[in-house]
């Protein structure tokens, strides 16, 4: 029995895994925040039909959603150094590719991927807000930027938040791909521990539980945030007339 499932080894992996939780969370947080910014920009370019940018945005979203995350990570890891090298050679920019930590390529790849999904969520949420809201903002003299920021986006956030929650959870799990370019996050650490102890099953069960726990926590946080941003919907979800 002791050979089938090594309970003491199983428990001994938790502190080791916990040590790298911050790496997983850091990738998640950086990619999510950057994606929100990029996604908003892409969504606005499409909503306002900005010439050229709009076509570019549509092509980007299509590509980012139509290629595997893993491929995007490799493209980032092998492609960006080429660009940096080119800039270095051509313009004498003092950039040394070898000094860029691998995690930067991960940030880039995840932002590239997640921003595409978020932009669609954000676009749909903005379009779901009644046009009259912006008209009312304009009618009291606000600029369309002010109307967007103060009136439309806060309401769109309430619409988009459940979707954002899903995206964050998917992102947390996708960070397990970062070890493919040697960034040691939780999955990477699990593989190292498994190889060291020659017991893989125990450590994968452990890492699954840690991912699950993190995701439960995020679900809770999103639920609380949702209640806060939906505060204005008051007692009745249906508009009283």
């Amino acid at each position: 029995m002791g050979n089938l499932f090594d309970v003491s080894f199983f428990f001994s992996t938790f502190p080791e895994l916990a040590r790298v939780i911050p790496v997983t969370l850091k990738i998640t947080l950086v990619a999510m925040l950057a994606s929100l910014a990029v996604g908003l920009g892409v969504a606005l370019a499409r909503i306002y039909r900005v010439p050229f940018l709009r076509q570019l945005a549509a092509a980007y979203v299509s590509f980012a959603r139509g290629t595997p995350m893993l491929v995007q990570i490799y493209l980032s890891y092998y492609g960006i150094p080429l660009v940096v090298q080119f800039l270095h050679d051509r313009y004498g920019w003092n950039l040394d590719v070898s000094r860029i930590p691998a995690i930067v390529f991960i940030y880039f790849a995840f932002t590239f991927n997640v921003a595409a999904y978020l932009s669609e969520t954000i676009r749909a949420a903005i379009l779901a807000i009644d046009k009259g809201q912006m008209e009312a903002a304009l009618s009291v003299g606000m600029s369309s930027l002010q109307g967007m920021r103060r009136i439309v986006l806060p309401q769109a956030l309430a619409v988009a938040l459940p979707s954002f929650g899903n995206t964050v959870i998917a992102l947390v799990k996708d960070t397990s791909l970062a070890f493919m370019i040697s960034v040691v996050e939780m999955m990477g650490e699990a593989k190292i521990l498994g190889a060291r102890g020659l017991r893989f099953f125990e450590v994968y069960v452990a890492v699954a539980l840690v991912y699950w726990a993190i995701c439960i926590l995020i679900e809770r946080l999103v639920a609380v945030a949702e209640q806060r941003v939906r505060r204005f919907e008051g007692r009745s979800a249906v508009r009283a007339t």
Partner: peptide, 12 residues
């Protein structure tokens, strides 16, 4: 300023 048929109060 304008008063709208559907009120268009800022819902938030």
């Amino acid at each position: 300023t304008m008063v709208f048929q559907n009120y268009n109060l800022f819902r938030n």
